[in-house]
Write a protein that binds this DNA or RNA. Structure first.
Lengths: 124, 124
DNA sequence: CCATAAATTTAGACAAATTCTAATATTTCT
DNA sequence: AGAAATATTAGAATTTGTCTAAATTTATGG
């Protein structure tokens, strides 16, 4: 666990947001100005492989990172890309049963325009 | 509905595969050699907005396109990116109930190593 | 403590996927 | 036909992410 990896992890855990790699890079530089973009990407990948964080694929835009590894659903705003967690009881089991096989992992993403964007959209 | 858009749609409907934009571009050129990559992308986006096809986000690799708009699950092989459809009875309704709101659309992706890749992986 | 090996970091080059631009061509409407 | 709107094209540009090679740090074993 190098200083750099610790900083990346701190940034991810510092708030409830699901940041992009680029955002994590900028936030990490506030704490460790010498850190490079490649190191951020390297550590994000390493942390994902160690099953400490999870990558949320970004539907065209940049991927985002979740401070929890446990799979769960995400509500994504199709306007601004903001992500919120959500949990659906018994879903993993239902999925396994529906497929009839073990599942490496899953991604469940519901697109719902967030309140902030809804306001903007109504006006325009 | 221009000739180009018709060709893009024909390609997508011509088989059960979930092709990438690049593959669609090459297949479309067999039918209409002058078609350009930008036109393929333009029409894929237009068709998606018209809710005629659906984009499946490609987890790092290129996105793929589904000839149906109706949301349903996808089984994605994390090794080779191959995509298969799957259906889970009552899922859309369960999702709406879990979220307590209407859902624009959803994406449900289960990562399962496909049979072909499983063979390769066992050997290596 | 030193030597060596192994892993990590860094900056920047590179690559893939997609979007943008500006000119041209086509379609649509009157 | 003429004007306005829309679509196409080729290639440039952008975004996101990976790769490379050199420098640095960390770990290991005498």
């Amino acid at each position: 666990m190098t200083r750099q990896r610790a900083v990346v992890l701190e940034v991810i855990r510092s708030d409830m947001c699901h940041h992009t790699a680029e955002e994590i890079f900028h936030l990490a530089r506030l704490r460790l100005p010498s850190i490079s973009r490649a190191t951020v990407y390297n550590n994000l990948r390493a942390l994902e492989e160690e099953r400490i964080i999870r990558r949320i694929s970004g539907d065209g835009a940049a991927d985002r990172y979740d401070n929890a590894y446990e799979p769960h659903g995400h509500i994504v705003c199709p306007e601004c890309g903001a992500v919120k967690d959500f949990f659906m009881d018994g879903f993993a089991e239902a999925l396994r049963r529906a497929l009839g096989t073990e599942v490496d992992s899953y991604e469940l993403k519901a697109r719902v325009v967030c309140d902030r964007c809804k306001l903007h959209c109504v006006g325009s």
